[in-house]
């Protein structure tokens, strides 16, 4: 068995990545999970979060996924994302602002707000920040 795995990451409007990777790290429903070749078949939903992939060439790439599905076969990984953005294209300031805004809305108990929507926005902003952080870590090393 080889130690590389075929991976494709697609969103509704584009293909973000398609090729061979050594492994991929995602945020699953029950926390982070890393997928190497030979992983057991797995089907899961993805909450918003970063995805880090180690390409065959040893190059790393970070993507932000706004949620979606993950299918793992022993020799193949398919990520069906709702919206996916390369972490290098994310705007850190905008994400921070969105986070602060969401926190403010959540903190404001008096007003008549859509709690689940605000919660979702907060998670989304946090996930974006996480993706940016992950990218920074890679660049530092």
């Amino acid at each position: 068995m080889t130690n590389i795995i075929q991976c494709s990451i697609v969103s509704l409007h584009e293909t973000l990545f398609s090729g061979l990777v050594r492994y991929i790290v995602l945020t699953g429903e029950y926390g982070e999970l890393g997928v190497h070749a030979g992983h057991a078949p797995l089907l899961t939903t993805l909450p918003p979060g970063p995805a880090r992939l180690m390409k065959e060439s040893g190059e790393e790439e970070v993507l932000f996924l706004s949620g979606g599905f993950l299918e793992v076969q022993p020799d193949q990984v398919i990520v069906l994302a709702d919206v996916a953005v390369r972490a290098s294209q994310l705007d850190e300031e905008a994400a921070l602002e969105a986070k602060l805004h969401a926190e403010k809305v959540l903190g404001d108990t008096a007003s008549d707000i859509d709690h689940s929507k605000a919660m979702k926005e907060l998670n989304d902003a946090l996930a974006r920040l996480k993706a940016i952080q992950a990218l920074k870590v890679i660049h530092r090393t």
Binding site: G28, Y30, L43, T45
Partner: peptide
């Protein structure tokens, strides 16, 4: 498959 969180929902 292994299902997370659970088969029906996903």
């Amino acid at each position: 498959y292994l299902y997370e969180p659970d088969a029906v929902e996903i």
